[in-house]
């Protein structure tokens, strides 16, 4: 009985972690040097129905798109939008951190 209870608690804890984890598409972008010019990327990303929040970091060349709960966004869509805005994607990955966490992490490292 005790064993069953332990398994249940652990499962619940793991499930809760999974359920709370954000899904953020994080792209590394070449050529993104000016906020005035890069605003097109942010506007196109925010216009997507799946988008919860967007973060752009010029120095680290990062565009992070946090998704709403239960939403999916393909890497190809992100790449195409960034390319349409005039930039090149050199790397792309999925992060379980929300945009706020990624922003805080980069600013803590001194990268505005």
């Amino acid at each position: 009985m005790k064993k069953l209870l332990t398994i249940s608690v652990l499962s619940l804890a793991l499930f809760s972690q999974f359920a709370l984890a954000a899904q953020t598409v994080k792209a590394t972008v070449n050529g993104m040097v000016c906020a005035f010019c890069a605003q097109g990327i942010e506007k196109k990303m925010r216009a997507l129905s799946q988008t919860q929040d967007v973060y752009v970091n010029l120095k680290q060349r990062i565009v992070a798109v946090e998704l709403k709960d239960g939403q999916n966004l393909s890497f190809d869509t992100v790449k195409d939008l960034i390319k349409d805005a005039g930039y090149d994607v050199t790397g792309i990955e999925m992060s379980e951190h929300p945009v706020a966490h990624i922003k805080a992490d980069m600013e803590a490292k001194g990268a505005k």
Partner: peptide, 12 residues
Amino acid sequence: RLLHRWNMPHAQ
């Protein structure tokens, strides 16, 4: 017309 763009890691 944008004839050509060079996107570099820290420059454009």
